[in-house]
């Protein structure tokens, strides 16, 4: 973090803007998106293989987007606060989605058995 630049370019905890980082992120995302579609369109893979490949690609792309475009970082106080709220949102998100699936699976199980 170059502190002398902070006056002219306030970063609001979103990191300094660099073309190289954006370009890397852009190329990485394109490769992963095309790969995920290729896996499904190709059709050579079994269901389980295809599932694990596309979800791995999605998670890697998610991380690239967070680091390269949203510029989540723990280098400034604001950046750390952003990460904290982000993690909290993640907890709620997982609760909502996994909780719903769990409840519905249970209902299904007890009605069918």
């Amino acid at each position: 973090m170059a502190h002398h630049e902070h006056e002219s370019q306030p970063d609001f905890g979103t990191g300094q803007k660099k073309l190289s980082v954006y370009t890397f992120g852009f190329i990485g995302c394109i490769v992963l998106t095309v790969f995920a579609f290729w896996v499904v369109l190709e059709g050579h893979f079994t269901k389980a293989q295809a599932f694990s490949l596309i979800y791995t690609a999605a998670i890697i792309q998610f991380i690239i987007q967070l680091v390269c475009f949203l510029r989540l970082n723990a280098q400034t106080e604001q950046g750390r606060t952003n990460i904290l709220t982000f993690v909290f949102t993640g907890v709620i998100l997982v609760t909502i989605i996994l909780g719903s699936l769990w409840i519905m699976w249970n209902l299904n199980y007890f009605m069918m058995n």
Binding site: T33, A36, I54, A57, A58, Q61, F62, Q65, L70
Partner: peptide, 9 residues
């Protein structure tokens, strides 16, 4: 854009 990753997956 991030939401779209999950939509298409």
């Amino acid at each position: 854009d991030i939401v779209w990753i999950f939509v298409f997956t």
